[in-house]
């Protein structure tokens, strides 16, 4: 092996170490989500200038996952433009992003620029380009189905670009299983029930605010966990679901006990 190649290798190793080192990651600026427990698990909030993955639990939970990504994007950069990169056929499969609905969640539709990529490769390239542009608040890369080209190398590229510019990368994956990546956090999102109504009482309470069952399955610098969050459309924060779900209805959706990992770290 020539010395040039060796030095390249050493350089790359250094890079990897730098990405994966805890000390550096702790220095990343963070933005609180508003959900106290989740923020505690995330060491103060979602890391900016890093890569985060959000998986829809199944294809049918795509809207919930989209809502979660939209919420994260709003928390990350309320005033800066958002670039949403997606593939053409994701629109057929799970509907186009509706900007009216985006506005209803308390986000500003004027800040959204959409890139309709024809295929995965051009989507990845556009996202990497965009991550290098520090005028953006965050870049959302929406990918439908399994994605071979989005491997460890590609995700490392995205991470490095995000680190360099401070732009946050959010990858929304639908109908896919998690694979190796350099993501800072990985979430699996399902829709949660609206608070139950007593049958004998006609409720005048409005229902239908985004209620998300979010599971943090990977967290580089903290414990995992699973929480039911409500997105407050007016305050634009995530919130612990206000109405405690009754035991009978909640079992299917809420874990019986807080995850073990969380306990160990907390003590």
């Amino acid at each position: 092996m020539t010395s040039a190649r060796l030095s390249t290798l050493a350089h790359l190793r250094g890079d990897i170490e730098r990405i994966e080192s805890q000390s550096e990651a702790r220095l990343l600026p963070r933005v609180a989500l508003g959900h106290a427990e989740a923020d505690a698990a995330l060491q103060g909030g979602l890391a900016l200038g890093a890569l985060h993955e959000v998986f829809a639990h199944e294809g049918r939970h795509v809207a919930a996952a989209t809502g979660f990504v939209a919420g994260l994007a709003r928390r990350v950069g309320p005033r800066r433009p958002l670039l949403w990169v997606r593939q053409d056929f994701a629109e057929l499969e799970s509907g186009a992003l509706s900007l009216r609905g985006f506005g209803e969640l308390g986000l500003d539709p004027r800040l959204v620029v959409t890139v309709r990529a024809a295929d995965l490769d051009s989507a990845l390239r556009s996202a990497a380009d965009a991550l290098a542009c520090d005028a953006l608040g965050c870049v959302v890369l929406e990918i439908w189905g399994e994605a071979k080209p989005l491997d460890l190398v590609a995700s490392r590229k995205l991470t490095l670009a995000a680190r360099g510019s401070g732009v946050t990368a959010l990858v929304l994956r639908v109908a896919a299983t998690p694979t190796a990546s350099t993501a800072e956090t990985r979430w699996i999102v399902r829709a949660a029930h609206s608070p139950p109504l007593p049958r004998w009482q006609v409720s005048t309470q409005p229902w239908g605010a985004p209620l998300l069952d979010t599971e943090l399955v990977r967290n580089r610098h903290g414990p995992n966990g699973r929480w039911i969050m409500e997105w407050k459309c007016d305050a634009c924060v995530f919130h612990d679901a206000a109405n405690p779900q009754p035991v009978a209805a909640a079992i299917a959706d809420r874990p019986p006990a807080p995850p073990v990992v969380a306990h160990r770290r907390a003590s």
Binding site: T66, S94, A96, G101, E104, P206, D234
Partner: peptide
């Protein structure tokens, strides 16, 4: 853009076919 009505849940969907 039309402003959202405060206190109401979202009245338009996030994803539209």
């Amino acid at each position: 853009w039309p402003a959202r009505i405060a206190g109401e849940p979202p009245l338009r969907p996030l994803r539209l076919f």
